[in-house]
Design a binder for these strands. Structure first.
Lengths: 159, 159
DNA sequence: ACAAATTAGTTATGCGCATAACATTATTCG
DNA sequence: CGAATAATGTTATGCGCATAACTAATTTGT
């Protein structure tokens, strides 16, 4: 691949990251949220109470980031952290009532943002887009074991 | 669009941002660069000496970000900032020799990263991918001129 | 059983990015 | 002209994200 093509691609990804995040920030600001925090709330809404290590895995960011994010969301009263009885190292994170309400609002915004994002795309593209993006992500994902040519989009839980 | 679809899309964009940036960081680290800085070097290599305001526009980030990034790249000796003779407010930014050499190395990495990123994509997808991503970016870009259509599809108006 | 290795979480630090408030210089216009 | 306005850049501050170094708790292996 020549540099022109490569640069167009990398630049496009970088710009999409910046603008999509900026747009998310603008939408989330009225709710008192910063971009990144919504993902944590949505994950808790989807999966229920969980350990920070699981959050780190689900969100795709490192434990220290989770520590700081949960601390701030706890300070604003949207989540609660309680020590896990079965493991004295771990702390269980869960949504408070205000956190649940906020997550519902985020869901609304999230739909609006997605629709805004894909406006004007060629027919049929919207359906395959998430798959394409996930393929790209998988290709550069260093934290999760690489499946060389594995065609299996495993819906199976890994042991 | 229902929440499942919207979430899949937004989440996919967020994760791609994180992982692509992380992969870029891993590739750039041996060169002593942090992700984001490579874009500045490449822009200077592409366009030649320019004002910080132009860099801000080209990179799609705000002037204070440019101030800090240029300061750090100047400290590491890769760029040079000289006062503009025609405009006492502005400062001209340009690559030093070491900066030019570094930019060339970045170009190599950038090609490798792009190829790695698009591995395994359906035939024909690679060619249209940058265009798709740019469409998405344009749809959520608040700093650029609004969509050519007068029609505003956004659900949240920013007065 | 107990030392070694792993795992959960935190603290410290640094970068890129943002907004807000500000100083300085250019430009526009009454 | 001179005053209002716009543009360039900086400082201060804050968030998300990262890595490195650390503590404390749990699991493993012999």
């Amino acid at each position: 691949m020549d540099f022109e093509q490569a640069d167009a691609l990398n630049q496009a990804i970088r710009l999409l990251s910046l603008r999509h995040r900026a747009r998310a920030a603008a939408l989330l600001a009225p709710l008192g949220l910063h971009p990144g925090q919504e993902a944590l709330l949505l994950e808790l809404a989807r999966t229920g109470p969980m350990i920070q290590a699981q959050l780190s895995e689900a969100l795709g960011c490192e434990p220290p980031s989770v520590t700081l994010m949960t601390r701030k969301l706890e300070a604003t009263g949207h989540i609660r952290r309680t020590p896990a009885p079965s493991d004295k190292r771990a702390s269980i994170v869960e949504l408070t009532d205000s956190g649940k309400a906020l997550a519902d609002q985020v869901k609304q915004l999230w739909c609006a943002l997605a629709e805004e994002t894909v406006t004007g795309l060629p027919a049929g593209t919207v359906e395959v887009l998430p798959g394409i993006l996930n393929t790209l992500t998988g290709n550069v994902d260093t934290r999760r074991p690489r499946h060389p040519h594995g065609r299996r989009h495993g819906l199976v839980a890994e042991s």
